[in-house]
């Protein structure tokens, strides 16, 4: 490639990228941080303060919501992995040819449907006059209509559902790349199902599991629709707190502090996940 002091082509390609990253990603988040660190002392006058963060730790509602969001997200991520792994293994290893491709595409379908529509589907299924409730009555398991919406179980079901694809795709991709002869060798050497799983399949699938878990956790933590619609008024999700502070209360300083806290939590989890699996961010994302 031609080398010269000032490479016009390079700069033509580089400047839009820099503008994008600077104006829409970096500066807004720096702004978020700065605003979270100030307090209004008089109309249109601000001073540096950690008050917004102090408020977060002193008001039980805030930090409890935060902890609850984190814990439920971890639970949802674990459940998604548990549910997705056998299915991914089945699609990747037990099936061949056309049916395998068909089932893989079937796994992708929910992704193409708006999250709002998916959540709406769960509302129709789970509400008091919904299908599941009617099914329970019809089968005699329940005498009266059952309200399955507006509790943590409903939120978890919805979260796992929304995130499933982002677990299934990386899992199927990594499991698919595992050579069958390695599994056969494991059995030939006298390994049990359990051994082969733990010693061969899972170590091989680890990168896919980690990318899946990171993506699912991020999406779950930042989810707004599912907790709001399936959890009802008392769903207490941290993104709802952020929305309330910004849009309802117009307390941008407090809202920014919440935003930074959520961002820190998600970065921490991503970092931990990468650390535990010794992968780089770029590997996981592509």
């Amino acid at each position: 490639m031609r080398r010269s002091g000032f490479n016009l082509g390079l700069w033509l390609l580089l400047s839009p990228l820099l503008l994008w990253l600077l104006l829409l990603i970096l500066l807004p988040h720096v702004d978020l941080l700065l605003i979270s660190l100030r307090e209004r002392v008089a109309p249109r006058e601000y001073a540096f303060s950690l008050g917004n963060y102090r408020e977060f730790f002193q008001e039980p509602l805030y930090w409890r919501t935060f902890a609850r969001t984190a814990l439920l997200s971890i639970l949802a991520t674990a459940l998604t992995l548990l549910i997705a792994f056998p299915v991914s293994y089945y699609v990747a290893k037990m099936l061949r040819g056309r049916i395998k491709n068909a089932l893989f595409l079937l796994c992708l379908i929910p992704f193409w449907v708006s999250e709002l529509v998916r959540t709406y589907g769960w509302m129709i299924l789970l509400r008091e006059s919904g299908l599941v409730s009617n099914l329970l009555q019809w089968s005699g398991l329940s005498e009266t209509p059952v309200e399955l919406l507006y509790n943590d179980g409903a939120i978890t079901v919805g979260l796992v559902y929304s995130a499933m694809l982002f677990m299934v795709v990386p899992l199927i991709t990594t499991l698919d790349s595992l050579d069958d002869s390695l599994i056969e060798a494991g059995y030939d050497l006298g390994g049990s199902h359990w051994h082969v799983m733990w010693e061969i399949v899972i170590p091989h699938a680890m990168p896919g599991m980690v990318s899946g878990c990171i993506l699912v956790f991020m999406l779950t933590l930042g989810n707004y629709l599912t907790p709001t619609l399936l959890g009802g008024k008392d769903s207490l999700w941290f993104t709802e707190q952020i929305y309330t502070q910004f849009i309802t209360r117009f307390n941008w300083e407090q809202g920014s502090a919440f935003g930074i806290l959520l961002l820190m939590l998600s970065s921490l989890i991503v970092w931990l996940g990468l650390r535990l699996s010794r992968q780089s961010f770029a590997q996981v994302m592509s």
Binding site: L17, L21, L24, I25, L26, L27, P28, H29, D31, L32, I35, I214, M218, L221, G222, Y224, T239, I242, Y243, F246, W252, G255, S256, G259, L262, L263, S266, S267, V270, F281, A282, M285
Partner: peptide, 23 residues
Amino acid sequence: LYLLMLTPLVIPGVILGVSILLM
């Protein structure tokens, strides 16, 4: 820069929206 280019994937949508609103 490549890493920076990937970061929007891990920023929750609500936060991205809020930060752009602020700026």
